[in-house]
Design a protein around this nucleic acid. Sequence first.
DNA 1: ATTATGTTTCGAAAATAATAGAAATATCGT
DNA 2: ACGATATTTCTATTATTTTCGAAACATAAT
Lengths: 106, 106
Amino acid sequence: MNEEFVAASLRALGHRTRLSIYRLLVKAGDKGLIVGDIQKVLGVPASTLSHHLAKLARVGLVSQGRRGRKICCCVDYDEMHSLIMFLTDECCTSVNLESEYAQDAA
Amino acid sequence: MNEEFVAASLRALGHRTRLSIYRLLVKAGDKGLIVGDIQKVLGVPASTLSHHLAKLARVGLVSQGRRGRKICCCVDYDEMHSLIMFLTDECCTSVNLESEYAQDAA
DNA sequence: ATTATGTTTCGAAAATAATAGAAATATCGT
DNA sequence: ACGATATTTCTATTATTTTCGAAACATAAT
């Protein structure tokens, strides 16, 4: 996770609609959500939604897979964990680092 | 921390230069850094840097205070902690959702 | 007061991102 | 093969962001 990639990931999440999409997918859990269902919930035009999903997928935060003629979207938790880890380790005080070290110590 | 504010904060960090600025300030620690010093390290024109700092300050990730004719910039760790907490609680695994479903089931 | 220093605001250009309708693509059911 | 459904790609428009020089502003030193 280099700085450029982290910035791109944060930028992907740093948009109202995309953050809503992401949180919706988190709520949906492992089985994910069909693009059409996301559209119904958020009321975004199909092409706009597709554009936003592509942006989330490009940085690996969301994965997509075809299921018949529908496409299922899923959160990639590893990616979010890496992101949170970066923010915690590289963008926080040593207070946080202490707790991490504590885990190592324990 | 509502969704709109979180999106704005992520957007503020989702830019190469601004993420570099932020990390630089984290490294600097509690005493922070003078704008001019940030400029020397990153080699960004003064007006551009000022614009980026304003963007980080607007969402509270960075605070600025005048010290004589210089201006000192400091990371606001609470803000970053809130952000990380949001991502952890609202954008992570179903561990959280289970507890939600658990409420329904209970 | 004047000058030097550090930073911001102004203003305008260039780059990037967001939006969405229409056409294209992929798959299913018949 | 054909029509229906789900989604993407194309294309264009509009909106936002980034960039940075020049001018303005604030403070300090003389």
